[in-house]
Amino acid sequence: MKVAEIAEKLNLKVFSGKEGLNNEVTNGYTSDLLSDVMGHADAGNAWITLQTHKNVMAIASLKDLSAVILVKGFEPEEDMAAQSNEEGIPVLGTSEEAFTISGKLYGMLQK
């Protein structure tokens, strides 16, 4: 499923990285520990987190993740948004908690 379709169906705000809205989302990974994501997320995963700094994009890029979804109304810091645009990896946002949005995304991707 494409990032754009997920953003639309889950009513996610698109903060940056619009060039990557056609990225294919294979699965999701929910974590706020960077080394956990580095060690265990897979290429194509959408990363659900509350971390809003630039290092998130470094990891998203190195791991070939499809998108980052910020929870609980968090917004990307300026340099995070800038790198998201450079890399073409979208940063999306929701007001919902990680548990809720992870459950919804899981449900969508299982279909």
Partner: peptide, 12 residues
């Protein structure tokens, strides 16, 4: 606080 320092780096 940034999400580093969880003691997972060297194992990774």
């Amino acid at each position: 606080e940034m999400g580093f320092g969880a003691g997972m780096g060297l194992p990774n």
